[in-house]
Design a protein around this nucleic acid. Sequence first.
DNA 1: CTGAAAGCGCTTACAG
DNA 2: CTGAAAGCGCTTACAG
Lengths: 344, 344
Amino acid sequence: MSRTEQTGTGRRRPPTIHDVAREAGVSRGTVSRVLNGGHNVSPAALDAVNSAIRKTGYTVNRHARSLITGRSDSVAFLLTEPQERFFEDPNFNVLLRGCTSALAAHDIPLLLMIAGTEAERRRNMRYIAGHVDGVLLVSSHSGDPVAAQLHEAGVPLVACGKPLGQGSKVSYVAADDRDGARDMVRFLYESGRRRIGTVSGPLDTPGGVERLAGYREMLADCGLPADDALIVPGDYSRAGGEAAAALLLERVPDLDAVFVASDLMAQGVLAALEKAGRSVPHDVAVGGFDDSPAALASRPALTTIRQPWDRISAEMVRVLLAQIGGDDPAAVILPTELVRRDSA
Amino acid sequence: MSRTEQTGTGRRRPPTIHDVAREAGVSRGTVSRVLNGGHNVSPAALDAVNSAIRKTGYTVNRHARSLITGRSDSVAFLLTEPQERFFEDPNFNVLLRGCTSALAAHDIPLLLMIAGTEAERRRNMRYIAGHVDGVLLVSSHSGDPVAAQLHEAGVPLVACGKPLGQGSKVSYVAADDRDGARDMVRFLYESGRRRIGTVSGPLDTPGGVERLAGYREMLADCGLPADDALIVPGDYSRAGGEAAAALLLERVPDLDAVFVASDLMAQGVLAALEKAGRSVPHDVAVGGFDDSPAALASRPALTTIRQPWDRISAEMVRVLLAQIGGDDPAAVILPTELVRRDSA
DNA sequence: CTGAAAGCGCTTACAG
DNA sequence: CTGAAAGCGCTTACAG
C-alpha cells in the first residue's frame, strides 16, 4: 500500500478507486467504467479490475458519485398524516416493510419521513428537493397539497392510492377499491342479507369514495333499494367504526349486514354490535376491507377484502424507479380478493 | 446570474456556495464558515452571507459536504428480526416514529433497514460501514451478532434494550423491566391474589429475563412460595400468549392472576381465559407489560406497565448523536409506570 | 477576520 | 478499448 495508513483506534481509510486502479494496473477511468456497467472495457481489464476490487474490499463512495451524477441513489418514504392513524393501522407496516425490501434489492436506501405537522412538512419538502431521487407518498387525506407540490417541483413521485384532483399526471398504485366493495356486497347479498348498511371511509379519500361507490352500485345491481339511512361515514379508526355502527343500529333496527370500509373500523363495529346484543354473523353479518392483521385478531375473525399489500409496495417501487429512469407516470390498479372467515 | 440557466423542462441548477459568495461579495471560504457555525466571521460578512442565502434560496449540497467531512449526516434504524413480530407489535411503530422525529429535529434523515434474513443482514452491514454515521439497533433476540459486529467495526451504536453478552461497551436505552415487573406483581398481590402465574418473554431477550426476575423477586418479597409450574415462557406473540395461558390453566387450575410480559401476549391470554370460561378480572386478574395500543384495544382493557416509548426513542437519539460527536458509550434506564384499567 | 488554493473520490467527454 | 484531465460543490489548513 502506498498511502499512509492511519494509526491508533480510528477506522482505516477505506480503499478508493485509486487503490483499485493501481492494484489492477489500469487507470481510474477504466475502473470507473467497470463500476458503471463494464462497457468499453476489454475482458482482460475487466478481470483485473474485478479481482482488484475483491482484493482491496473496495466499495464505491456514494457521496463522490452523487456529487457528480446529481443523483442520490436514495428514495424517500413520505408519510403525510396529521393523525397517528397510520401507526395504529397495521396496513402501514406491511407497506413500509414491503417498500424497504423492494428497494433494498436495488441497493437503494429508504429514508423515512413523517410529516404530521405543517412545520415537518416544510422541513421534509426542503430536504427532498436535491437529496432524494424520488418519493413514495403515503397520505390518507389526499386533499393535501404535497402531491401537487412535489409534482410541480419535478420530483419523481408515486402515491399509494389515487391522489384526488391530480388528474393522471401523478403516478399511483392502488387496489381496485370499487371492485372489492362490489364483491363484498354481492357476497353479503348472496348469503341472504337484505338490509345491508355500510360504514364508509372518509369521503375526501379515494378509498372512501370508491368503496362507497362500489357498495351503491352492487346494491342497485342486486335490485336492493338505495337508502341513505344505511350509509354512515367513518374515519378509518376503530373508535369511529364503533360510533358509526351505533348510529346505524339506531337508524336501521332491522339491519342484517354491514360492509365496513376498513378492518380497523370493523373491529369497532363488532364491539358496537356486541354491546347492542346482536350476534355476529347470526343477527348481523360484518364484512371488512384490507385483510390487515386486525382481521385475524378480531373475534369473530373478519371476512374481508384482501388488499395485495406486497404487490402494492413492489409496484410502487417498480414504477418509481422506472420514472426516475425517465419513464412517464403510470397508474397501476391491482385486483382484490374476498377472504372468508367467521364474521359473514 | 452569470452561469447559464438550463433550458427546457428540467429542474434548474440549484444555487451553490459560489453563487452565494458572489451575491454576498465575499469568498467561498467565508460562506462556508457561516454555514458551519459562523466562527471567525465579522458581523457584516455574516449578515451579507445570510441574506445572500435567503435571496438565492441556497441549501447545502450534502454530498459535497460528506465527501470532504467523511460524515454522512444520516443515521440507520436497523431492525434485526427474523419474524415479522416487530410489525405485528405496535411498540415498534411508536419507537420508529419517535426516532424519526427526534432525528428530524436535527435535520438528520433516518434510513430504515430491515434484516430479516442472513442475506439482508450482510447487505445492510456492508451498506452501513461508510454510509451512515451511526446505528439505532432494534433487535429482540439479542443473541444475534449484529451488535458485536457493529461495535467491532467502530460504528457508533445504540441498542434498544440491553444487548445480552456485550458487557457495557455498547450503549443502550431500556425501560426498567425488572422494576416494572415487580410493580405489577406487587399490585396483583395487594389486590388479594395469591396464585400468581406468569407468561414470560423469550429467555434469550433482556426483557424476557428481567421481567421474569422481577416477578420472582416480588413473589419472594411477598412471602409467596416459588413454584415453577406458575412460569410459562412465551414468545411475545399473541398466539404464543394464548398457548401459554392454556398450559398454565392446565397446570394450575386455581390460578387467580397472571403477569404477562407483553400486551400482545396478554391479548392471547385473555382469549384463552375466555375459552376456559374464566372471567377477567373476577376469576383471574391479568396484568400486561408495554402499554401499547394493544392494551386499549383489548377487552377488557389491560392493566399494564407503561414503557415510556417517547422517552426511549428520544434518549436513543440523544445518546447516539453524543457518541457520534465523540462521547463514550452510555446506558440509560428509564422508569416504568403502572397503568390501571379493567383486567386487574 | 479573510481569501486563495488544495483536495475529498468519483464520472465523463475528449483525444487517441 | 484506454488514459489524462477537468470538474462536481464543498471544507479546511494556510498565510496574511
